[in-house]
Design a binder for these strands. Structure first.
Ligand SMILES: [Mn+2]
Ligand SMILES: [Mn+2]
Ligand SMILES: [Mn+2]
Ligand SMILES: [Mn+2]
Lengths: 220, 220
DNA sequence: ATATAAATTTAGATGATTCTAACTTTGTTG
DNA sequence: CAACAAAGTTAGAATCATCTAAATTTATAT
């Protein structure tokens, strides 16, 4: 079985598990762009090789082996994204598609060498954590801007769902990771927030956007 | 039609045409690690898409389109090899296998960015020429050490067939591209040469090796 | 709790790349 | 130039990832 296919299935399962909790065949099919019967037959084969546990009509479960393998692919993906942004001057909205292909290159040395010249970063350009060589994640940002109060000062640390539409929206607003944000107003009607940061003195973000911005609270 | 399959066929055909002159199905099969009937059926399909001309029992011919496409894949391969050696500290014997995979990444920008940070090199780490964006090769080294005379001084510029066995043999002899070589003796019996360069004062190379070293003659 | 909707599974098929075995054509050599 | 060797072609089949259509199971809503 082509390693690439296996790797893409495992990675998607890992991300679904992380973010939805349980892995449905329909969700996997949607993310991988294949039909549900295709998922079904692939999952059976992945079970034969010990990556997942499959039981009829039950959610798919990753084995520990499968989860570790998936984390290592995500490690490669995120190291590549960081390398492209830091060393090859790509924008954070340009790197995902390239990383999607490069994560399948069969060379441990390549990724370890990139990791090394980057200085072993712990987060990728979108603030997502980079798993270590054992597939473990040490740090992650989980406090959302939408949970903060008027007057709070926070630093933008990570994004939820870094699709390029969202990244280009943030580019337009000149809002980058590391920005120091002050919350000046919260509209109780719809939860939209008015904030200031850098040169921008009054920018209003919808609740939808605020829920996708992970922040770190600065000492008050 | 998986792009990767097509690209590997075209690249192999280009290299065979360059080294042998005419493209035999058996040679293609040997290089790609597939059977001759497999080559036969693939070549027919490549013809349908305009990359080659196929006639029963005749050597395979690349079209101009196919030749250009092949050159562009070789361009990517050689840029990657140069990048790995120059920017990620790989040895020249370690980079071919990685480049073999990376050349198939679907991003013009990635390769152009690597080319840019390298300063648009004209040769790869083995001295092979890097085709330009139009698939044209401007410079190439073709004078062999085996053609030189006793007393000649030359600079090592490129290798013929850079397989890793050969590269590691050269590593052991501390013989690198750019080395300034003086020919001190030629054994007429078998054509082996005794040369000096760098710290090495008397190294003997077989005729077989000398035929694989491209040099540039230094002003006499 | 029954009807309806949603999700999953099975069955059967397709296109891509590959193989081996058998056959045909071309090249070489005495 | 006839015989044999080498190279190339055809036939037929396997595997893999994928699909659609139909059947089955589980979940939801009156
Ligand atoms: Mn990504
Ligand atoms: Mn991928
Ligand atoms: Mn190479
Ligand atoms: Mn290749």
């Amino acid at each position: 079985m082509p390693l690439k296919t296996k790797e893409n299935y495992l990675k998607s399962m890992y991300l679904i598990e992380e973010h939805v909790g349980t892995i449905a065949a329909s969700e996997l099919g949607k993310r991988l762009g294949v039909s549900v019967p295709t998922v079904n037959s692939m999952v059976k084969r992945l079970q034969d090789e010990g990556w997942v546990v499959y039981q009829k009509y039950k959610p798919i479960k990753l084995t520990n082996l499968g989860r570790k393998e998936a984390a290592l692919i995500i490690r490669k993906h995120r190291i590549v994204e960081m390398f492209l942004v830091e060393k090859l001057n790509f924008g954070w909205e340009e790197v995902h598609e390239i990383a999607e292909e490069m994560e399948h290159i069969h060379s441990e040395a390549l990724f370890e060498r990139m990791d090394e010249v980057l200085g072993n970063p712990v987060f990728d350009p979108h603030g997502s954590p980079i798993p270590d060589r054992q597939g473990k994640i040490h740090l992650r940002h989980s406090l959302k801007l939408s949970e903060m109060k008027v007057g709070d000062k926070v630093k933008l640390r990570a994004l939820l769902h870094s699709n390029s539409d969202f990244l280009m929206y943030l580019n337009n607003k000149k809002l980058e990771l590391g920005a120091e944000i002050t919350i000046t107003h919260i509209e109780s009607f719809d939860g939209s927030m008015t904030i200031s940061y850098g040169e921008e003195t009054s920018v209003t973000l919808s609740r939808e956007v605020c829920e996708r911005l992970f922040v770190e609270q600065l000492n008050v």
